[in-house]
Amino acid sequence: MPAFSLNAYVALSAVLFALGGIGVLVRRSPLAMLMSIELMLNAANLLFVAFGRAHGGYEGQIMAFLVITVAAAEVAIGLALTVLLFRRRPEADVDQVNELRL
């Protein structure tokens, strides 16, 4: 039986998620942004697991497991893109990758 109430876990998850969001917003290195996104995913995972435990089912854990795996795939792709980015210019800055606006 966890010692703290579910509220504590939800609040902690919220804090982690928001800090990860700040990381995405204020860092301009693609690596840092990727890491921040991973941390946000982890915050969501924590929520899944906590609620799963509160309900006494396995769905939360299975979902977290899925997220971890998908995150691995996502990181693989994201890092591949980062490598491509660094190949184009040695000092990678996401602000300079603005071809997205056509």
Partner: peptide
């Protein structure tokens, strides 16, 4: 939301 949400009042099963 985390501190005062209704869902968070849930008891551990």
């Amino acid at each position: 939301v985390g501190l005062f949400g209704h869902e968070g009042r849930l008891d551990w099963a």
